[in-house]
Design a protein around this nucleic acid. Structure first.
Lengths: 214, 214
DNA sequence: TGTACATCAGTGAACGCGCGTTCACTGATGTAC
DNA sequence: TGTACATCAGTGAACGCGCGTTCACTGATGTAC
């Protein structure tokens, strides 16, 4: 928490970066108590500011949460995109990197992850929020496309379906076993290995064997 | 809500079934506002009882939530077990029924589902709760076992891994696309079909083709 | 079958507390000239 | 470079509200004899 009361004198009357500080405080509080476990007043306190101050930046608590979720999806999309790396060095290897990035995000950013997927935000609360979510899914879709393209046309499955399968498997493993918070279930193996094995078996089932694509 | 204030006269001073009524009220409230969206006092009000009454039955709000989750897991395990039906008429068909039951539960019982998987209850809060969760997973494990047993020993994958893959895929699809609440995402196909296709491809990848097992 | 009594499962009033929100305000900052 | 002024981003006091929890209580129920 870099915006403690001590800093206030240095900062003077104006905070300077309250919007960012409130988001950071929300993330800390979500980490500690879950997405439902903090209040607008909590966030203000953590940012070292009066309870009325947040209203200058967010309509209400839900708007703050939605902003956290939006930022989460943007970070998520970035990390997935970087991991996919335009399908380099090859679609299979790139897909493995993508899967690892999915799980790593759930593990390293449980607060974002919870805000994105479990804060029970109405789906249509914010256009920017749903667009950021779409951007993250688009990376998966792109990966499925590249993988399907390596199959001869007559044996090519629907790309959308493949991307949804990969998404669901990743999401299931992340939510059950890889998340970095209290809801994580124990597992006698690394979640990354579980996901990788599952994807390999699935791709085998599609007729995409490792030899052709590694 | 069958325990309204109107009924009180009929019931007299004692409620008669307050514990059950509180659980029912909690489910209604979770349906309406999510697992974080109700209070102990809300539940008492919905049950037509004074705010002090629930303390006769639950230590606090969290204990009530945990009881809801436990009941949910028990119901879930029952429904999965009935769908699996001891592997009848054949493992492939029975597995399909099992998958459908998983998604149907998420769709028809969103309140239970949310309490079970998204209420952020500490994993060790209640022994009965985690045992009920284990019972549900045991059904999936049993199914994986039966499926693996149809493969020759030298090509048999680890049963635990297979059961986790099926669990994760089902859970991912249920959480993202099949849940019966506001967090459900739109999908251009039936979630049941998406799951069935995914499982078939996966089993193909394991070397379990439909012809051998239907 | 009656009766006395223990126990159970509620009541309702009370409390302290923290939250969300509003309000008039004021210190700090930016800008036009 | 100074100055006047508009705007911005905070303060802090106040409010009504509902929650969690406790308490002494009491009506209803069950049971021993």
């Amino acid at each position: 928490m870099s915006w403690s009361k001590q800093d206030r004198k240095r900062r003077g009357y104006h905070h300077g970066n309250l919007r960012e500080a409130l988001v950071a405080a929300a993330l800390d509080l979500i980490d500690a108590k879950g997405p439902a476990g903090f209040t607008f007043a909590d966030a203000a306190r953590a940012a070292g500011v009066s309870p009325a101050a947040p209203y200058r930046h967010f309509r209400d608590r839900e708007a703050l949460l939605a902003d956290v979720a939006r930022r989460g999806f943007e970070k998520f999309a970035d990390q997935l995109d970087r991991a996919w790396n335009n399908g380099q060095p090859g679609p299979m290897q790139a897909l493995e990197n993508l899967g690892r990035a999915y799980l790593a995000f759930a593990e390293n950013e449980p607060a974002y992850y919870a805000a994105m997927f479990e804060a029970q935000l109405p789906r249509d609360i914010d256009r920017e929020l749903s667009e950021a979510g779409d951007r993250a899914f688009a990376v998966l879709r792109q990966a499925a496309e590249a993988l399907c393209a390596t199959l001869p046309k007559d044996r090519r499955p629907p790309t959308l379906m493949v991307s949804l399968h990969i998404w669901a498997l990743s999401h299931g493993i992340a939510s059950l076993f890889a998340r970095g918070d209290a809801a994580r279930r124990a597992l006698p193996m690394a979640p990354q290995d579980l996901l990788e094995a599952g994807v390999l078996i699935y791709l085998d089932g599609l007729g995409l064997t490792g030899e052709h694509n590694r």
